[in-house]
Amino acid sequence: MTDKIFARAAQPATPISFDVPAGACDCHTHIHGDVEDFPFFAGRVYTPGPASPDEMAALHEALHVERVVIVTPSVYGTDNSSSLFGMKARGATARGVAVIDDKTTEAQLDAMHADGFRGIRINLATDGVNDPDVGRARFAAAVERMSARGWHVQLYTTPAMISAIRGLVLASPVPVVFDHFGGLEAALGLEQPGFSDLVALVKSGKAHVKISGAYRSSNLAPDYQDMVPYARALIAANPDRIVWGTDWPHPDSAQVAGRKATDPAPFHQIDDGRLLNQLPVWSQDDDIRRKILVDNPARLYGF
């Protein structure tokens, strides 16, 4: 892989316009190490470029963000070694979210915990899972596996699937975290199916939501103004259950006509400085922003 094939992951172009509190956390990032050391999963649906720990460090220095959560993306299957590579480079200010399967042993999970992993991710969106029965079964199995360990279960899915698993989430003995605004579509409005269920789950305290990856839900770059009512509704429902993230390096996991899974999928070029500057638009309260950036991640990820 070379820069002639892949565009580099974006770095912030806009200075931060507010005081970011000490201990702030970017709760959703990925590391893509050198492909020779960290090969991709043969069954992946896209092929991203490299995104190194040094590049991530530069990102967070510009954003004034101290802590990070590195999430294993679908391109690695159940191989979490690239995430661990990034976590070790960051040290005590990093935590991880792993992808596992039924072959993952309890001893392996113990080792992951020692390394700083604190949750597992179920990716129903990139996998194209729309069958509620499949979603319920995968979620229930994950919750059962994590119940004795106390890790959280993170889902990348759609509002329709959130509605389908609502009862299971309410009964879950472990925290549940929804990626990227719960996969909503800004153009469909606040009354879109599933959004009220997401809000209700957040209000109940049984679910966290990452107000991250706004570009996945909105077509109004670069400020994503149409995300304002959704962010405000989720924060108002329960500010103790909201965390923030960049989704750096902003992979393009979409199915594109004519692009094979093994073809290079250039990163989205997102200005994360401008993105973080939307947080004071979403919440003008300093104490609430501190909860979102510092207190909630510290509790959820065990910083």
Rank of each mutant, 00 (worst) to 15 (best):
V99C: 11
K88C: 05
W248E: 03
A207M: 10
V281F: 12
A160F: 02
N219R: 15
R274G: 14
G43I: 00
Q154F: 02
S204H: 13
Q255V: 06
H268Y: 15
T2C: 00
A89H: 06
L234G: 08
V20M: 06
S217F: 01
R95E: 00
V294H: 09
A94Q: 01
I270H: 10
T158R: 15
P251A: 15
V281H: 13
K291V: 07
A187H: 13
S218I: 07
V97S: 01
F267R: 01
T157A: 04
F139A: 11
P222I: 06
A24D: 10
A148C: 03
Q154H: 00
A22Y: 02
Q108F: 00
G273T: 01
L220Y: 04
H32T: 12
R166H: 12
P280A: 11
Y46S: 02
V97T: 08
A58S: 15
P280I: 05
D26G: 04
S253C: 07
A7K: 11
N238M: 12
W282S: 01
D3R: 14
R90A: 15
A137S: 14
E66H: 13
A114F: 00
V199W: 03
A9Q: 10
W151P: 00
G33A: 11
S147M: 07
K291N: 11
A10D: 11
V65W: 09
V143W: 09
V69Q: 03
S147T: 14
A9V: 03
L59Q: 10
V45E: 07
D54C: 04
H64Q: 14
A221L: 11
S52A: 10
A265W: 14
I235Q: 10
G245W: 02
D286S: 12
H268P: 03
A13K: 09
Q278M: 13
T47D: 13
R118H: 02
L188P: 06
V65T: 12
G43K: 06
A214N: 07
S217L: 07
H60E: 14
R290V: 04
V134Q: 13
A111Y: 01
T78P: 05
R289S: 03
T104I: 05
L198K: 08
Y224W: 12
R299W: 03
P266L: 04
A236G: 15
P222Y: 12
L59D: 05
S196G: 09
R44V: 06
R90G: 00
G33T: 14
D19S: 14
L279T: 07
F303T: 00
P21Q: 10
V65S: 09
D240R: 13
I270Y: 08
L170W: 04
N130L: 10
A42H: 06
L59M: 11
A214H: 05
V209K: 14
P132V: 05
V256D: 01
N238S: 13
F267G: 04
A142C: 01
E191T: 13
G245K: 05
A214I: 08
S204N: 14
R232T: 07
I122Y: 13
F18A: 02
A142H: 02
P297M: 01
V65C: 10
G77P: 05
A98H: 08
W244E: 11
A237W: 09
T262N: 04
V99I: 15
P249Q: 06
A254R: 15
